[in-house]
Write a protein that binds this DNA or RNA. Structure first.
Length: 854
DNA sequence: ACGATCAGCGCG
DNA sequence: AAACGTGCTGATCGT
């Protein structure tokens, strides 16, 4: 009787895990913790492999050997110094392909009690969570924000429940599986090294007291004292909602924290009578307006405009945003929340347990139940928020030094300008959108009728039962690939794709109608409705955040101002015509020409590339086009083909695409290129489609041609660019981060494309930030009334009084023209384009912008 | 009823 | 292995 058959026989009868059943097929179910734990390190891995199962113990496979080897390099023996255990103790069932199947949430949940039991029993000093299964096992029942290794890997987290330090680390099995990914491996080694080499002490922190100001006299005294004596405080509001421009909101309470403690006071709250409310409100206003009281906030995008709009106070001395600082320290997504920071830094869980349900706003009304919360809970929560913000600030002062601190200050100035432009807002003609909405809905409903009464819909109902929902990708998949028996050409994670590209290729009346309905629904739902929802008193205030994007770009929300249609003429007209200048003004838009292309040059310094990008260096897109279609250098190509090359080749390649994708796209798109009159583009006297067939024979021939061209492009044309890319990746492998000219550091796991794309994207945007900051400064200095009302990565949208157009032109030309003097790493100037609309009185709008001579 | 996730689609 | 980044909507699934 072999060991494995012995276990198989006994697996079910011995099981203590009746809910799971995973053990029933295993040779070695319910593996127990192993190792001697000499250094009190507990390693929690994912789950046993088939080989582990066969051998009857965890980490007996190549993954285990790899881990042992890496630990040995760090002077640690897995057997002697650690305890180790899989988070799911039975080998996962095989999937249909015979590979190790997925571990489910249920498996993790069922095994969790054992894991928690051994932690209590062993009381480890450090816990290494090796892989996502371990991460979920450890955190899912306590904190829903600790979800992915992309976000958590490399952190050092104090756990106040088990009094231990936790180190999430990439799964060793994943490292084994992705052997070729040297960048991931380097991250893995760094995480492991940090976990092993960090000397730990039990975490202790003494927290300042919180004061809940429920007595009016005491409240006045405390506020007055703050106003007179405080020079640095963290502030926080609890409010009835997030949309500060919507009527009917109130500031339920206000809290501030300093080195001694934190205080919270009801403000526009029925706890006080109206007269008391007035007095408190006035004092809070004075604190907000006093420049000498420096303020720290968590999320300036909210606190700053709320101060202006709801507290009717000019925000002064807002010197730090802990959210922005968190983002600068760690640019990975999902780390900036105060709750999350409290959890990972100080092991604080659930301080919003009571307040949580009151804070959640009703999705229809936009109001929450803040005023219904017991005052005591409200003040405690508010005080804690400001207290934690203050403590976070203090830790960030220690953490952010050198170039990263410079980067913070640069972004802080930018953030205030973003707040100002959001506060300014853009004028909206609501009547226009209301009217468009009706027209679009009519147009859509007619199409829906056609779809619902089509033969296909009848056939669908006859075959499958139920009605065909044109809007459901699931129904559409059934319709196209089951009922109509068409062949799927593109897959998604869970099924067959039915996106516009697929529908366009199928090209029957049904798919044409669905494409049209989708476009209309997008216009109605995302844009028209979105604009109306966020417009108050004829003004819309999109928010612009600098603390979200991994690339250190901005993002925009409520509504997103950065994705309003521009390429499709009809969509452009409908969505942009209702954005208009104020009385006696025009809308203006300045944008950098080829912002990211130029910025890439500042980094890679490729002479061939720079020559293209500067005066008289030829036209890169045309030359690539000529190579791709003719295999000739420098032949002048028809404009639409050149334009097509940008998307098919140049930009794709710069973002890291490769010849096969480019070939597929080019083989489809080039033949569709037409001249202005609608006739097919001509090459050597032939239609482009016919020419390509003749020249390359088949798709495969075209692909081979692009394979060769890719080598020419990167190894002959842009050798220096290629060398730069290699160096950036090597440096990241060595250092664990990539740094920009302005001191921003990209951290966490990145693949080679991200390593080289982020600095270009980020820096390009930062030139715009600088331009916006300088422009606002200059406008104020010169007493101009021009307003910045929006921003789209490489462009600024302005609302300009007619008489200031020339001033704006001059100021912008100066600032942008001098960028390369300010930033010495710019080898040549950034290009500038300017467009303006007609005045409001002449019907000008964001839909019709005309170039302005510079 | 509500959160999470996916697919789809808009922009630079 | 094979295109970077973002936000919003509606459908779907699970609690």
């Amino acid at each position: 009787v072999t060991m494995s058959s012995f276990f198989k026989k006994n697996a079910v009868s011995k099981s203590n895990c009746p809910r799971c059943g995973l053990g029933s097929h295993c040779s070695a179910p319910r593996m127990k913790v192993a190792g001697k734990g000499g250094q009190r390190i507990l390693v929690i891995g994912d789950s046993p492999s088939a080989l582990d199962d066969d051998k009857g113990a965890f980490y007996r496979d190549s993954t285990g050997r790899r881990l042992k080897q890496e630990l040995r390099h760090l002077g640690i023996s897995l057997r002697d110094d650690c305890w180790y255990v899989p988070a799911v103790r039975c080998r996962p069932a095989l999937n249909s392909k015979g590979e190790a199947g997925e571990v489910s949430t249920a498996h993790i949940t069922n095994c969790r009690p054992y894991i928690q039991g051994i932690i209590k029993e062993l009381r480890p000093e450090k816990i290494l969570l090796l892989g996502e299964t371990a991460l979920h096992s450890y955190y899912d029942d306590r904190n829903k924000q600790c979800t992915s290794m992309f976000k958590m890997a490399g952190m050092q987290i104090w756990d106040s429940t088990y009094n231990t330090w936790v180190f999430p680390i990439w799964s060793t099995a994943l490292i084994e599986k992705k052997k070729h990914d040297t960048l991931l491996f380097s991250e893995y080694k760094r995480c492991l090294k940090r976990a092993i080499h960090t000397e730990v002490q039990p975490f202790e922190k003494k927290w300042n007291p919180t004061y809940k100001l429920r007595n009016f006299k005491k409240a006045i005294k405390a506020l007055t004292n703050c106003l007179r004596n405080d020079t640095l405080i963290a502030i926080d509001y609890e409010t009835t909602g997030l949309d500060m421009y919507k009527a009917g909101h109130s500031t339920a309470s206000f809290a501030w924290a300093n080195d001694e403690g934190s205080w919270a006071v009801p403000v526009q709250h029925p706890y006080w009578n109206p007269k008391q409310q007035e007095e408190i409100y006035a004092l809070v206003q004075k604190i907000l307006k006093k420049r000498k009281i420096k303020k720290i906030v968590q999320g300036i995008n909210f606190e700053y405009p709320w101060t202006k709009q709801q507290m009717k106070a000019e925000p002064r001395g807002f010197i730090w945003d802990t959210q922005l600082a968190t983002h600068i320290i760690d640019n990975r997504t999902g780390v900036t929340g105060l709750k999350f920071q409290c959890f990972v830094r100080w092991g604080i869980e659930d301080y919003d347990k009571i307040s949580g349900k009151y804070i959640k706003s009703n999705s229809k009304t936009g109001f929450n139940d803040m005023l219904k919360m017991p005052v005591d809970a409200l003040l405690e929560y508010n005080a804690l928020d400001s207290l934690y913000t203050y403590e976070l600030y203090k830790e960030q002062q220690e953490q952010l030094v050198g170039t990263e601190l410079d980067a913070y200050h640069f972004m802080h100035n930018g953030a205030i300008v973003m707040c100002e432009m959001s506060f300014n807002g853009i004028r909206i003609k609501e009547s226009f959108y209301l009217k468009q909405k009706k027209l679009l809905e009519q147009e859509r409903d007619d199409l829906i009728d056609l779809i619902n009464t089509s033969d296909e819909a009848t056939q669908y109902t006859r075959q499958r039962g139920g009605n065909f929902d044109y809007n459901s990708p699931k129904d559409l998949q059934i319709m196209l690939f089951k009922v109509l028996k068409l062949k799927s050409r593109k897959e998604t994670k869970t099924g067959h794709s039915v996106d516009a590209e697929v529908l366009q290729k199928i090209d029957i009346e049904l798919t044409r109608n669905i494409i049209a309905v989708r476009k209309l629904n997008k216009m109605i739902g995302t844009y028209v409705d979105g604009f109306l929802k966020h417009t108050h008193d004829g003004m819309m205030h999109p928010s612009f955040s600098l603390a979200r994007a991994r690339s250190f770009r901005s993002s925009s929300q409520s509504p997103n101002f950065q994705n309003v249609p521009k390429r499709d003429p009809k969509a452009k007209r409908i969505t942009r015509s209702g954005m208009v200048p104020r009385d006696g003004r025009v809308l203006g838009e300045m944008d950098f020409s080829g912002a990211e292309i130029s910025t890439s040059c500042y980094y890679h310094k490729d002479p061939t590339f720079i020559k293209y990008q500067t005066e008289g260096g030829g036209d890169m897109h045309n030359d690539a086009c000529s190579h791709i279609l003719l295999n000739e250098k420098d032949t002048k190509m028809p404009k639409p083909l050149r334009q097509c090359t940008k998307g098919v080749w140049t930009f794709s390649q710069f973002y890291g695409s490769y010849y096969v994708s480019c070939a597929k796209q080019g083989w489809e798109e080039y033949p569709l290129c037409v001249e202005k009159d609608g006739s097919p583009c001509q090459v050597k006297g032939m239609d482009i489609g016919d020419w390509m067939k003749q020249k390359y024979g088949s798709y495969k021939g075209f692909e081979n041609h692009l394979k060769k061209f890719q080598s020419i492009f990167w190894d002959e044309w842009f050798t220096v660019y290629t060398e730069w890319k290699d160096k950036v990746c090597r440096d990241y492998e060595r250092d664990g981060f990539v740094e920009t000219f302005l001191g921003f550091k990209f951290k966490g796991y990145m693949d080679s494309k991200q390593c080289t794309n982020y600095p270009i994207q980020g820096t390009s945007f930062h030139l715009l930030v600088y331009t916006a900051v300088q422009f606002l400064k200059e406008c104020r200095k010169q007493g101009l009334e021009t307003l910045i009302v929006g921003q789209v990565h490489d462009s600024l949208i302005l609302d300009i009084p007619l008489e200031e157009i020339d001033d704006v032109k001059r100021i912008l030309s100066t600032i942008v023209g001098n960028l390369h003097e300010v930033f010495k790493w710019m080898d040549f100037p950034m290009g500038l384009d300017l467009e303006i609309s007609k005045s409001y009185e002449q019907g000008g709008s964001f839909a019709s912008m005309e170039p302005l001579e510079l």
